[in-house]
Nucleic acid binder design. Structure first.
Lengths: 123, 123
DNA sequence: TCCCTTTTCAACCATACGGTTGACAAAGGT
DNA sequence: ACCTTTGTCAACCGTATGGTTGAAAAGGGA
C-alpha cells in the first residue's frame, strides 16, 4: 500500500507541468485558476493535474467560498527520499566492500565477477 | 533538457516492477534473464523495462559474451534529491516566516491569506 | 433574483505504456 | 557444424494519460 503511494508520487512528479505547479505551491497556496494562468491549457486540464497531485498526497485542498486553494504537503517528499537513500546507501556500501576486496588481494588475482545479489526487498 | 531527464527518472521509478529491479541492482549487477526470473512476465517485457531505466540514465550495460549485465548508476539519484530538497526547503522557510509573522502580531490580527508566491522557476 | 466566478463532471480523441507472441541476431559450448 | 543461451526487434492489444469542448454545480455580489 505504501508501494502504491510511492508509485503515485513518482508518477505525479514525472510530468513537468505538475512539477512546475509543485514548485509554485512551495511559494504559497494557490487556486486552480491562479495555477492555470501561466500555461496555455484549459482550467479543466489543470484541475485534472491537481487531482493527480492530491491523489498522490502531495496537495490538499482548503475551502474558501467558491475557491478551493491548493496547499503543498511537503512531508510526502520524505517517502521518496527514504526510498532513494536506502538504495543509494546500499549501492555505495557495495562499492566500499568491492574496493576493500580489491585492496586486500595485492593486485593480480582476477576479481570474480561480483554477483553479490542480496535480493533487496522493494519497499 | 535536465528537465527532460528528471521527467524520465521520475517516470521510470513510478513503476513498482522497475523500482524492484533498481532495488535488486543496488545489491549487484545482473543480467536481463536474472532480473526477469522472480516475476512471471516475459523476458521481453523486462528488456523493455531495462530500456526505460537506461533511457533515464539509471542503468548502464556492460558486455560479457552473450550476456549484457545491467549496472545501477546511483549518481542519478542526486538529480531527484536536489529537486526535492529545493522545494521542501522553500516550503519550510515559508512556514518559518509565517510563524514569525503570527508570533509578531500578538494574536488577534487576522492573518492575511498568505499569497507570497515568488514564482519559483521549475528547474 | 439574476448573473458572474470558480471548479468540476462527462464525453471524446490521440498518444504512450505495459504486456503479449513470434522471429531473429549474437556468442558460446560440444 | 549444430544447438543452446541470451537478448532485442516488430507487431499487436487493452488500458491509462493528457488534452480538448460543453454543461452544470456551488457560492457571492449587484
Amino acid at each position: 500500500m505504501v508501494d502504491d503511494q510511492l508509485s503515485r508520487v513518482f508518477a505525479a512528479l514525472a510530468d513537468p507541468t505538475r512539477r512546475d505547479m509543485v514548485a509554485r505551491l512551495a511559494g504559497g497556496d494557490a487556486t486552480v485558476g491562479e495555477l492555470a494562468d501561466p500555461y496555455d491549457v484549459s482550467v479543466q486540464a489543470v484541475s485534472k493535474h491537481i487531482k493527480v497531485l492530491t491523489g498522490a498526497g502531495l496537495v490538499t485542498r482548503r475551502k474558501d467560498a467558491q475557491r478551493r486553494p491548493c496547499h503543498l504537503e511537503a512531508e510526502v517528499f520524505d517517502l521518496m527520499t527514504k526510498w532513494i537513500e536506502r538504495y543509494r546507501r546500499q549501492a555505495e556500501e557495495r562499492y566500499a566492500r568491492l574496493d576493500a576486496v580489491l585492496a586486500e588481494m595485492g593486485g593480480n588475482e582476477q576479481p570474480t565477477d561480483n554477483q553479490t545479489f542480496e535480493q533487496g526487498a522493494a519497499s
